[in-house]
C-alpha cells in the first residue's frame, strides 16, 4: 500500500501542471492550427476554408503594416534601452553616494502598470499643452506632434516604453557589471588604458550574457506591444502605431474573425521564435 502510494505521489504532485499544460497550452496550440484552416465567428458553425486564411494573410496590407510597425518599435526601443541602461548602470557602479535612491527612482516605472504609464505619457505628449511641448516652446523650439504625426508617433511610444522598462535593465546590467573580475581592470590600469577603453574592451565583452538576456527580454516584451497603442492612439494616426498584437486583437474581438486572427497569431508566434533564434545565433558568444 505505502509502496504504491510512494509511486503515485510524484504524479499527484505534478498533476496540476499536467492538467494546466493540456488545457491551456497543448490543446490551444493544436486548436490554433486547426482554426487556421477555418472561418469562424464563434457563434455559428466552423467553416473549412483550406488555405484561405493563409492566402489572405499574405495579401493583408494592414497586417504587414502592423508587422513593420512592431519592428520599427523594436529597432528604436532596444538600442535606446541598451545604451541608456548600460550608461546608467556604469554610472551607478562607480563609488557614489545615494546609490539606493537612484536605483529605486529608476525602477519606479517598472512596477507600475503599463496602463498608468500610458495615460500619464498621453498627457505629457499632448500637442497643445503637454509638458514636453511646453518645455520645447519655452526653450524656443516649435511644438512636436508626438502622437499626431504618423512619422513620429511610434517613436514616441518607443521612447515611453524605454522609460517604463529602463530601470529593470539598469539593475540587470548592474548585476552583470559586478561579475566582471576586478583584476582585468587593474591589469588594464597598469597598461595605462583610459576609462572608455576599459569599458569597450573589457566591460562590454564581459557582460555579453547580460546583453544577450536584455535583448531577448526586450524583444519578447516588444513583440507583445498592445496596451500602449490601444490606449494612446488606437493604432493611429494612419495606422502608424498599429502593432501586430493590436491588429490580432482587433481581428478577433472587433470583427470576430476567429480563424483569421488565430492564423495571424500562429504566423506571428513563428516570426517571434525565428527572430529570437537569429538573435541567439548572432549575439550570444562564449566567454
Amino acid at each position: 500500500m505505502s509502496n504504491t502510494r510512494k509511486k503515485i505521489m510524484p504524479y499527484v504532485m505534478v498533476s496540476p501542471y499536467l492538467v494546466h499544460l493540456l488545457a491551456f497550452t497543448t490543446f490551444p496550440v493544436i486548436f490554433s492550427l486547426i482554426l487556421t484552416f477555418h472561418k469562424w465567428n464563434i457563434i455559428g458553425p466552423m467553416e473549412w476554408v483550406e488555405f484561405g486564411n493563409w492566402k489572405r494573410l499574405f495579401y493583408d496590407r494592414l497586417f504587414w503594416i502592423s508587422i513593420f510597425n512592431t519592428f520599427k518599435f523594436l529597432s528604436i526601443h532596444i538600442p535606446l534601452q541598451i545604451i541608456i541602461a548600460l550608461a546608467l548602470a556604469e554610472f551607478l557602479n562607480q563609488n557614489i553616494r545615494l546609490k539606493g535612491f537612484f536605483r529605486a527612482a529608476f525602477f519606479m516605472p517598472v512596477v507600475v502598470s503599463g496602463v498608468v504609464v500610458t495615460i500619464l505619457w498621453q498627457q505629457l505628449f499632448s500637442f497643445e499643452n503637454g509638458v514636453l511641448n511646453r518645455l520645447l516652446v519655452s526653450l524656443g523650439f516649435g511644438k512636436v506632434g508626438w502622437l499626431i504625426d504618423p512619422d513620429i508617433a511610434m517613436v514616441s511610444i518607443a521612447v515611453m516604453a524605454t522609460w517604463k522598462n529602463l530601470g529593470l535593465y539598469v539593475i540587470l546590467f548592474l548585476v552583470g557589471l559586478q561579475t566582471v573580475p576586478k583584476q582585468y581592470y587593474e591589469a588594464a590600469d597598469l597598461d595605462g588604458a583610459s576609462h572608455w577603453q576599459k569599458f569597450i574592451k573589457i566591460t562590454v565583452p564581459m557582460i555579453n550574457p547580460t546583453m544577450f538576456m536584455v535583448v531577448i527580454l526586450s524583444t519578447i516584451g516588444g513583440f507583445s506591444l498592445f496596451i500602449e497603442p490601444y490606449i494612446m492612439t488606437g493604432g493611429g494616426p494612419l495606422n502608424s502605431t498599429l502593432s501586430a498584437v493590436l491588429y490580432i486583437y482587433k481581428q478577433a474581438f472587433q470583427y470576430y474573425h476567429m480563424g483569421y486572427s488565430a492564423t495571424l497569431g500562429v504566423f506571428f508566434a513563428f516570426l517571434i521564435v525565428l527572430v529570437v533564434i537569429v538573435q541567439k545565433r548572432y549575439i550570444e558568444k562564449d566567454i
Partner: peptide
C-alpha cells in the same frame, strides 16, 4: 512559446 499562439484558442 509566445503567448500570441494560444491567445485566441
Amino acid at each position: 512559446l509566445p503567448f500570441q499562439i494560444t491567445l485566441i484558442p
